[in-house]
Design a protein around this nucleic acid. Structure first.
Lengths: 382, 382
DNA sequence: GGTATTACGCAAGGAGCTTTCATAAGTAGA
DNA sequence: TCTACTTATGAAAGCTCCTTGCGTAATACC
């Protein structure tokens, strides 16, 4: 009944507002103290809250007992898989990153081998962070390409053999918690809104400039995947200049492109010219997305963005005249962690969904699922 | 408290499920009969429910008292203003259209005169439908051009002098209820999802083919306006072929374009060729939107769409190969009522927002507002 | 006209939240 | 060191709202 509601509200207040005394918490939630006390007892039983040592000398009167959200009760794992490497981040329930790991992958390796590499990296990551596998409540992975709602990679040009793989199911074998798979640009967008340049924007587009430039969009603060997970792939239209973006810098070799970027960031004129031409080429694609969605801001990230690179400034200069609205355009500050961070955020969102659902308050979120289920609105019972 | 919740749930069940007896309603909502009884009494006091005559002979036992949603308690008015005419639709609280009206407007008339014309049309419409002005609980108007969140027309190429007008405020003077203003393509999208071709789709794009072709998008079943109300204006990019779409059929004259459309619908070869060429030109723009959003379906409507016109079929043929996903493309079935119907739906949504909000159950939704307020999530109190 | 059936209305019971009051556990000052 | 003040705790009483259960009312069928 309505105990659920108050329980969820209290949990949220405790987590988002940080450690608090009973009275503080009661005021924060808007409930009476005895009720809050009861709810807290329940939360402690479920392992989601814990009592801290009281702090003496912090004021007049009897010292209040202090309670905190037990962030270490569970963890979220974010995985960023691309053609050449895998990056992992583990975070506790507040989103505090408690460990990470990275490992190289062979570009030409077949999918099975690639998955094996990911599994090994996960093992190493969890060991290093001293996080028990049972303590993982959700896992999310980002990959280049289009990811269908059920977690299958339906289209991917940059990872050989990746297409058609039911990645969510494959990864799911390693875990006993929900495993989500998502397009990398989409995750980058989530990361930018969570901890990046788009922190207070509800409608965000994230340009993920890489081999092929994809984009992710957050609408109303929520990820927009599209019916088949293909939202943001506007770069498929040739005339918009988002295809083979790396090749525009250096036809053929990826590392060479990196050198061009570094040189441009240092001001080397010829390299700068190349990057500026790339920006000019990409501008129509970014503008098309901006006109389609009219976002509050656009964050430009991905491997092709280096600190001090002229790419962002040049894009800003070229895109804005094409738009109707005064959209903000900023470079990413998250570097190459954006996708991994976004994956963590996605996993945390999945955990929250379980934690705050009103129909079934479980101590430990549900079992293994190899896909995403449709959102269902809670029943309006008493 | 939680009475509000049950009250709202009961109201919704009564409205969406139709007339019912007490026990039926209780079962529908999941509450006990006495509780439902109490809630219903409250709803009757608020004028939102009424008791019907019992139906004798409809079964064994004592005849049950029957209750119904009082749809006539309030009304929603939808206004469709374009360069040449204004169309109005009035509906009751269930969305049943109870009246309509249309009037011509002078294309060259200054905004003041245009507004006066609209006011007169509203008066005529309400009189014909026998709807009292006080009975209007919300009004929505659609117009070509970009409409800012506060109801100002910030950009409009087809209605002279329209740009910069605070249309929501101007129209608001005539009413004592909330007045919303929205882009016509956006409203068309809402109409298509409500009563048109996109009835069961959550992510919908509506192509509104007119002088300038704009698009509206529904994401997750909700209208996506964008930060400045400019979402869908992807046609501003020249290379996408959505600009001056009418001119492509007949440079100069609007009526002539209509003749071309009629001729094409009847199979006249030369006209058909013109329309097909137009579709080919528009295909990239529609595909761009489809790639950007990956909608479940695209509905093609607007003045340039006639029954039997080759435009829709040709667009379908040209757009789908450019997309990654198997998007459905259908022609509108709503004709020239789509914008007006969408306006009614928007007004009804505004009414629902008041009717089902949990913090303040008012008999009569709030006073005059000349803009849209930001959505605020209900407080999580007990 | 009697009986079976279904709905209504009232009363009792229970869950959950709030208010209130006495008590406990500290700090500040004499 | 003792007293007064302040603030938190714990238990009890009271309120609201929902539910269950029972007796009564109104109709159809035989």
């Amino acid at each position: 009944m309505l105990r659920r509601l108050n329980s969820a509200a209290t949990l949220r207040a405790l987590r988002d507002g940080g450690e608090a005394t009973l009275s503080e918490l009661a005021k924060r939630v808007g409930l009476s103290r005895p009720t809050t006390e009861g709810v807290l007892g329940e939360l402690i039983d479920r392992g989601l809250a814990a009592e801290d040592a009281p702090r003496p000398g912090s004021g007049l009167g009897r010292p209040a007992r202090r309670y905190r959200f037990r962030a270490e009760a569970g963890h979220a794992l974010g995985i960023d898989i691309d053609a050449r490497r895998v990056r992992l981040l583990v975070a506790d329930l507040t989103g505090e990153v408690v460990g990470g790991h990275r490992a190289a992958l062979d570009v030409q390796a077949p999918p099975g081998e690639r998955i094996t590499g990911v599994r090994a990296a996960v093992k190493a990551c969890l060991a290093a962070a001293h996080v028990d596998r049972q303590s993982l409540w959700a896992v999310a992975a980002g990959t280049p390409g289009v990811v269908a709602p059920d977690g299958t990679v339906t289209s991917c040009t940059v990872v050989p053999g990746w297409e058609g793989l039911h990645l969510a199911r494959e990864l799911g074998r390693s875990f006993s918690c929900p495993v989500l798979v998502e397009n990398d640009a989409n995750l980058a967008a989530m990361a930018e809104r969570w901890r990046g340049a788009a922190r207070d924007a509800d409608d965000v587009v994230c340009v993920h400039a890489a081999l092929h430039t994809g984009m992710g969009a957050l609408i109303g603060g929520r990820l927009h995947r599209g019916r088949w997970g293909a939202a943001g792939e506007i770069g498929m239209l040739d005339e918009l200049g988002l295809r083979d973006t790396t090749a525009a810098l250096s036809p053929g070799c990826f590392d060479e492109a990196g050198e061009v970027l570094d040189a441009a960031a240092q001001g080397e004129p010829e390299a700068k010219g190349l990057v500026e031409r790339l920006a000019a080429r990409m501008a129509r694609g970014v503008a098309a997305m901006s006109l389609a969605l009219d976002p509050e801001m656009i964050v430009v990230g991905g491997p092709l963005v280096r600190a001090g690179s002229p790419l962002v400034a040049e894009l800003r200069r070229r895109v804005r005249p094409l738009c109707l609205s005064p959209v903000r355009i900023e470079g990413s500050e998250l570097g190459d962690e954006s996708v991994g961070l976004g994956a963590v955020r996605l996993a945390l969102d999945r955990i929250d969904e379980d934690l705050f659902r009103l129909d079934r308050p479980s101590r430990h979120p549900g079992g293994n699922e190899t896909g995403e289920e449709r959102q269902t609105r809670p029943s309006p019972l008493s």
